[in-house]
Simulated assay, not measured.
Amino acid sequence: MVTPSGVVDGYVEVTGQTIVTVGTGTPATGSWVVPGFVDIHTHGGGGHTFTTGDAAAAREAAAFHLRHGTTTLLASLVSAPPELMRQATAAFAPLVAEGVLAGIHYEGPYLSQARCGAQNPQYLRDPSLAELEALVELGGGAVRMVTIAPERPGALEAIKLLVSRGVVAAIGHTDATYDQTLAGVAAGATVGTHVFNGMRPVHHREPGPILALLGAESVVCELVPDGIHLHDGTLAFAAKVAGPDRTALITDAMAAAGMPDGEYELGGQAVVVADRAARLARDGAIAGSTLTMDVGLRRAVDVGMSMEDAVRMLTTTPARAIGMAGEVGALAPGLRADLVVLDEALRVERVMRAGSWL
């Protein structure tokens, strides 16, 4: 078992939906037991998307990732017109209340035109405090995180507003300088959205957002461990610099996760998936991933991370990043009984969520 105190042979006792005991001393069985994965950045999976605001599709996407061990996930939207953001928020709020989703993540539309990546450039705009207030109010607690480029006019005020309303502010899709990024951190941003991707690259005379985020002790840095978003050497280096308590491994998955190669859609744009890689048809920009968290765990271990550190980056750290450390993310008494049983090859054998086996 991978517990907060390390890797041990032992057992988990569950009553109802809650872990009541984590004991040690049981002989090893050849299996691993880890906490349910916590994915704080997902656009869909299993042929279903979060980005259209369809509640039925969202339920199916969450079920797909649950089968791969993700027991807690945010539904990530992409840059969209105001009416679609309102529609999606209203549609997903009941799923958050039900526990199907842990919350809503707006990845945009307050992002950099120069670093928009697969975000639809026609929907990008400066932050609006009135719009954010209305969306947070409409969500009734469902809005959990918002990604913002800190250099846009009004961005620092928007970050402060989000933090005051209990919403996590993230920095991403940004052309900010090093100092502009740190200003966003000082305003209250605590997450770096898929660090390296959709960001001004590092330069030794203008380090930009990447080094600012990796060096900021208050920031959890998202990394996508699919071998496409990041070279394995970059993944290993960044995770070592930030450490397991400041690294959250995410999927950034889109509807094509778990599906065959072919043509898909993201934010109203055509996406072509070939050999696991999802790219915009118009310019080849990376358009999310086809990753699942169990595959991400295996890759993290393959590039040299310890099992203990890799699991922490997939569970405990992302749970803390979105304010759920007291509910999920660890094998510990009092937390929700979310467990994944893995075989010796780290492939999913069984999944328990809230005390019930799938």
Rank of each mutant, 00 (worst) to 15 (best):
residue 2 V to Y: 00
residue 10 G to N: 01
residue 13 E to M: 08
residue 15 T to G: 07
residue 17 Q to A: 15
residue 29 T to H: 08
residue 33 V to D: 01
residue 35 P to N: 08
residue 41 H to S: 09
residue 42 T to Q: 08
residue 47 G to N: 06
residue 49 T to S: 15
residue 51 T to A: 09
residue 55 A to Q: 12
residue 55 A to C: 13
residue 58 A to P: 02
residue 58 A to S: 09
residue 58 A to F: 10
residue 60 E to Q: 15
residue 69 G to I: 06
residue 71 T to V: 12
residue 73 L to G: 09
residue 79 S to D: 06
residue 82 P to H: 08
residue 86 R to I: 01
residue 88 A to D: 06
residue 97 A to W: 12
residue 101 L to N: 09
residue 105 H to K: 11
residue 105 H to D: 10
residue 106 Y to I: 12
residue 108 G to C: 13
residue 114 A to S: 15
residue 124 L to W: 05
residue 127 P to R: 02
residue 128 S to F: 10
residue 131 E to H: 03
residue 135 L to S: 08
residue 136 V to G: 04
residue 144 R to F: 06
residue 150 P to I: 05
residue 151 E to A: 11
residue 155 A to Y: 04
residue 160 K to C: 02
residue 161 L to P: 13
residue 165 R to Y: 00
residue 170 A to K: 00
residue 173 H to N: 12
residue 182 L to S: 06
residue 185 V to H: 07
residue 193 T to N: 04
residue 196 F to Q: 03
residue 200 R to T: 14
residue 202 V to W: 09
residue 202 V to S: 01
residue 208 G to F: 11
residue 208 G to S: 10
residue 209 P to A: 14
residue 210 I to P: 14
residue 213 L to T: 04
residue 216 A to I: 04
residue 218 S to D: 08
residue 220 V to R: 07
residue 226 D to S: 10
residue 226 D to K: 06
residue 228 I to Q: 05
residue 229 H to C: 05
residue 233 G to K: 14
residue 238 A to H: 02
residue 243 G to Q: 05
residue 243 G to M: 03
residue 244 P to T: 03
residue 246 R to W: 02
residue 246 R to E: 04
residue 246 R to K: 07
residue 247 T to K: 01
residue 248 A to E: 00
residue 249 L to H: 02
residue 268 G to N: 01
residue 276 R to D: 13
residue 278 A to F: 03
residue 279 R to I: 01
residue 280 L to R: 06
residue 280 L to Q: 07
residue 282 R to C: 13
residue 284 G to W: 11
residue 284 G to D: 15
residue 294 D to R: 03
residue 299 R to P: 03
residue 301 V to H: 08
residue 303 V to K: 02
residue 304 G to N: 07
residue 306 S to E: 05
residue 306 S to V: 08
residue 313 M to D: 02
residue 321 A to T: 05
residue 324 M to E: 15
residue 324 M to G: 14
residue 329 G to F: 01
residue 332 A to T: 14
residue 334 G to H: 08
residue 340 V to A: 08
residue 347 R to D: 10
residue 347 R to Y: 02
residue 355 G to V: 07
residue 356 S to R: 14
